[in-house]
Design a protein around this nucleic acid. Structure first.
Lengths: 190, 190
DNA sequence: TAGATTACAACACAGTTGTGCTACAAAAAA
DNA sequence: TTTTTTGTAGCACAACTGTGTTGTAATCTA
């Protein structure tokens, strides 16, 4: 065994194993043993990196935030203002499997986080960050900041519907709703 | 022991005990034993009315739907069209503690329901009903049905934010967002 | 009154949970 | 070389889980 291991990378691996468990068997199936098995190591090894289960979950939720912001920052949208804002918004909506896994993890653990001060602080932070991001979009559209709360709620509502009722709501519909909403906002402004 | 007990009422009592556990200790704390203790009876007695835990959870989620629709049907709003529609919408948003408990139970169990066909059918049904309700409102406002999905998502997004981030979002803000949204829809129509 | 039915309690059982502790092997440091 | 550190495995433990089974007292039916 190598004495020195890239701690950060190992934690990432293990966190992604947790993701796989969640997306395959749901949040209920997450346990120290299940995640360790998925990662192909012993529970003891996992606990070497995450002493408590809470740490694992916190890491998983943080990763959602990190990946979302990374995707946003990597984006260099073109086209009309509407198209650009639309492209940004879609990065936080589960339009494909990748974003669906993120949403699954997020919404899955969020009720666990509600009664855990430490996790709650984390989710509050991510929520604040996202609101700041939406706020920037609203500003970029030259709109009043009153619109931030409404747009943010619309985005999260659409996300929720897409995740929970994929049979009743499709990505195309979501894109249309978002487009018409932004369109109305922009023409209202001019 | 009386031989005949009002089955329906007893189930209601036990379901409400589950609600209390959820609102006090969170969804994670729900177990046959915990709910029985909260209801002041033995786990065996509980299992007499709910043979499996799934039945209990299904009953709790159904109760959310029932209470919401009951509240809606009991409503006889007055004032402008906008005020009336607003009053209806607020019945499915956790503006006070009563509706907050409902939302807590609903969002708490919904990720459990995602990997359980029987529960999923239930949640799909409630979602469909709510969409039908929103659709009626949209029709009452004389709007195109395209608005249904957007309004429904906005309502659920606002609900989610109100439930999860009570420190960052207030009922007053939610009411304002909803009002301005409906207002824009109505004036756009004329 | 005799018997069937029902509400409830209590226990048993096997499985799973998070976490603490010990042991050991590999690699770095001395 | 010897010693120390570090990653990993494995076991132990107590608590808790859902659910099956059995017992019992109270009430209704005949």
């Amino acid at each position: 065994m190598p004495r020195i291991v890239d701690h950060e990378a190992r934690r990432r691996e293990l966190t992604e194993a947790l993701w796989r468990v969640v997306s395959r068997d749901g949040v209920e199936a997450v346990s120290v043993r299940a995640v360790a098995a998925e990662a192909g190591c012993s529970p003891g090894a996992l606990r070497h990196y995450f002493p408590e289960q809470r740490d694992l979950i916190a890491s998983a939720m943080s990763l959602v935030g990190e990946r979302t912001t990374a995707r946003i920052e990597a984006l260099s949208p073109s086209g009309s203002t509407l198209d650009q804002v639309l492209a940004y918004c879609e990065q936080i909506i589960p339009m494909d499997d990748e974003r669906r896994f993120e949403a699954e993890v997020w919404f899955g653990f969020i009720s666990k986080a509600r009664h855990d001060p430490e996790l709650q602080e984390l989710t509050n932070g991510v929520h604040r960050d996202l609101r700041g991001f939406v706020s920037d979009l609203v500003r970029a559209m030259g709109l009043d900041q009153d619109e931030t709360g409404r747009l943010h709620a619309l985005i999260d509502g659409l996300s929720l519907h897409l995740l929970l009722y994929p049979g009743q709501v499709t990505p195309q519909e979501v894109r249309e709703h978002l487009r018409s909403h932004l369109s109305a906002l922009l023409e209202d402004d001019s």
